[in-house]
Every structure is written in C-alpha cells, then in structure tokens.
Design a protein around this nucleic acid. Sequence first.
DNA 1: CGGAGACGATTTGTATACAGTACACGGAAT
DNA 2: ATTCCGTGTACTGTATACAAATCGTCTCCG
Lengths: 232, 232
Amino acid sequence: MTSLKTLERPLSLGDSVYRSLREYLRSGLIVSGQPLQEVDLAQQLGVSRTPVREALTRLASEGLLASQGRSFVVPALTGRDVEDIYELRLMLEPEALRRVAENIKEQKKLLALRRCLTEMRDAHALDDAQAFMTANYDYRAAWMKLVPNRKLVRAIELYADHVRYLRSLTLDNRKTREVVIHGLQRLASALAQANGAEAAAAMRDHLLEAKRILGKALQARAKGGDGDGPQG
Amino acid sequence: MTSLKTLERPLSLGDSVYRSLREYLRSGLIVSGQPLQEVDLAQQLGVSRTPVREALTRLASEGLLASQGRSFVVPALTGRDVEDIYELRLMLEPEALRRVAENIKEQKKLLALRRCLTEMRDAHALDDAQAFMTANYDYRAAWMKLVPNRKLVRAIELYADHVRYLRSLTLDNRKTREVVIHGLQRLASALAQANGAEAAAAMRDHLLEAKRILGKALQARAKGGDGDGPQG
DNA sequence: CGGAGACGATTTGTATACAGTACACGGAAT
DNA sequence: ATTCCGTGTACTGTATACAAATCGTCTCCG
C-alpha cells in the first residue's frame, strides 16, 4: 500500500458548530450588527456553550469574527479592507497558478477544472446566478487542490472567503458573468499548455477585473445606503 | 482629545495561556514528541483545562499545532515545509517592504529601525548571539508596524514564526550575522530613500540568503541526526 | 509461544454550575 | 428635566463533573 487517506472520524460537536457558523458567515446569513451570544447560538444549534465557544474562538482567530467588548461580532468590511484583501490576493493567487501550471504532470488533473467551466457556462445560459456562483467556487477549489505549496494554500484561504459573499453583488449581472467565464477560460487554457507566465497573467487580470467591478458595485450600494461600508 | 488608545483589559486566563504556550513554542522550549496533554499543561500553568483547551484550539487553528488522533502535537517541520514557507515569504515580504518604502511620510518612523540595527551591531561586536536574535526580531517588528496593509501583515505573521526558532541554528555563526547586518542595512537605506524597488530587492536577497544558509545548516544537522527532518 | 479479546486506566469531548463583571434601567436628588 | 448613583439582570470567564472513547496491558485460549 502506498498512502492511505486518514479516515475522517465522526467530527466533534466543536467542529460541527465551527463549520455551521463558518458557512452561515460565508453565505451572509449571519450579518454584522447583533453581537453573537453564546447561549443564543447554543440553544439554536442544540448544544451547550462549550463547543460554541470553541467555534467562536477559532473563527475569531481566523479573522472571521472580531472581539468587541467581551463578545464577538461579525466585523464590517470597510472599503479599505476590500482593497487590502485584493492587494494580498494579487500577490498570492497569480503566483500560485504559475506553480500549478509548472507542475501539471497529466492533463487528467485539469478535467475537474473543465467540468466546472462547463457548469458555469450552463448556469449562465440558464441565467441561474446561484448555480453560477457554486460552479465558480468549485472551479476555485479545483485549482487550489493543484497548488503544490500547502502553506500558500492556507494563506490564500485566510482571506479569500472574506469577500466571498460580496461577489453575489456582482455575479447577478449577466455581463459580469460573461467576463468571468472568459477570464477563467483563458486561465484554463494557460494551465493546459503548462504556461506559467500566462496562467499568472490570466489570474492577475481576472482579479483586477473582479476588484474593479466589485468596487463599482460597492460604490453604488454606498450611495443608496448609510455609507459606512459595504456591510451593514 | 483626538484618539485614545483602548486600554487593555486585564487579559483573561485563556489569553494568558495562549501567549505563554506560543512563546514556549517559538523559543523551542516545547518540542515535538510528547503529545500536549491538557491536564498536564493545566497543572503546570495552575489553571483548569478550559483556558488551556481554548489556547490549544487557537494555536492549532493558526497551524502552530497539529491534531494527531485526539490530542495536539507540535508538528515537525520537514525540509519541504521550510521550502514552502520561504516561497511564501518571498511572495509577501518584499512586496510589503515596497509598500512601506512608498508610504514613508516622515523619516522619524525609521528611527526605531535604525536603533535596532545599532543594537544588532553592538550584539555582534560582543558576540552575543541571543541579543542579536532579539534585536533582529525587533527590527522585523519595527518594519512590520509600518506596513499599511493589515491583512498582509496577518498573512506574513501566519508563517514567519514557524521558522523562527530555527534561525538560532544559523545566527550562532559570526559570518552569518555579518551577512544579515549587511542585508538589513541595505534595506534600511532603501527605506530611507523611499525606494520601493530597491527595498523589495533587498528583502528578496535577504530571504534568499537566509534560506540558503538555513538549508545548509539543516542538511548538516540531518547528517548527524536521524534524518527525518529538522525538528526532532 | 503467539495472538486476540476484554478490562481498566487515562485522556479527550461536552455539559453544567458558579463567579465576576459590565451594562441597562430606574429612582432620587439637584 | 437631567444627571448621577445604585441595584438588578444578563452575559461571559472559569472550574469541575460526567460521558465517551482510545490505548495499553493482562490473561486466556489456540
């Protein structure tokens, strides 16, 4: 036998709560405003405060929650935060894809990527924004799996999720989705050709474009809202 | 009054334990091998298991501990890990310093940096490796404080500490310390001139050099040891 | 003599109880 | 009427008790 995958143990309540809360945060179901109270969450999830506390601690340590006074709150992303996150992503993700392109051994590994692209195209044809976003994140997960440097993966994951729910603001738009598909097609081609420089450039352009569109969407929303940031 | 610093509340036991353990890990006082047992740690620190557990969870979530079976252990850094970490640092730290150089408003902010350099030189003259390392990390903390992008800072901090205690292997060497001083002098000059490109290049060369020397030291140690990695 | 199974001990996972603190609400005094 | 102070409530921080699971050891059987 060569390498056995460590079989997943029946994950603990702490882990379950962590995953649930994380998913709620990503999807925007828990928004900033109400302070996250341990007893509340515990009752809603049907567990005691202990695993809830553990999950909150972990989330805070990853920056998905901020401590305010004694309790945790969902931090409101400012325009500055978004700028910072994209600056960081521009440092990491193009380089990560360069490494992927240079490490492609068999084209087989790119199959999943192509499949996600197809799903995105289908969803776009059906004008299904939700399915499009799902396929979009699957695409992302697919190439992230190919990054050989695991520390790099962790660093990317540290912040990519933070703007995830914001993308729903922009991917509702038909034109935006077309631009995204085009960019990711270019990226997939570069990977298929094992062209590291082109893959990096494609990702760079994709991120710049995403940031530009997101910036415009946030500005438009701020004009209609209270103007203290993208998230209220 | 303009802006009052939020006075630090008497930090909780959970935080205290977290800081203590983190410091022990950094200094190499807790090494991999013995599994970290909650009751043990709790008794040694004079607290109950609850805050210990909280601290362990946080450390694990930051990658400073790994879960093995049910308990946490100090992960052994492999040669591959070191490679990955330096690859990541090369992506982030030169760019961070480019931003610092481009954001220098007043030379006053560089005073702390110069002071640390002086301390390093003094320590080197006295052949005090310990003081040299301390000054070295103060230097690092000084420029990190000037990085405008806080998300970038967090990403850098994610892994910089992981190889920290390994540096003691190399900074014992006189010649190494000279090289380090030279590199950081070059960096300070670039910052003083607000030359972003030169600052980035200086940091890049510094990291490459540090990685090269560390690699050699690890190889030498592996030859004498059991060869399963830098940390036993 | 070796292996397998069972039992016991040790350790983690979870719940709950208790203590301390901060915040809010109300009353009284200026 | 407003402000300050006091009391009460609600929440977090910590400890401890309890449950479940895993690991080691010992014994018994093949």
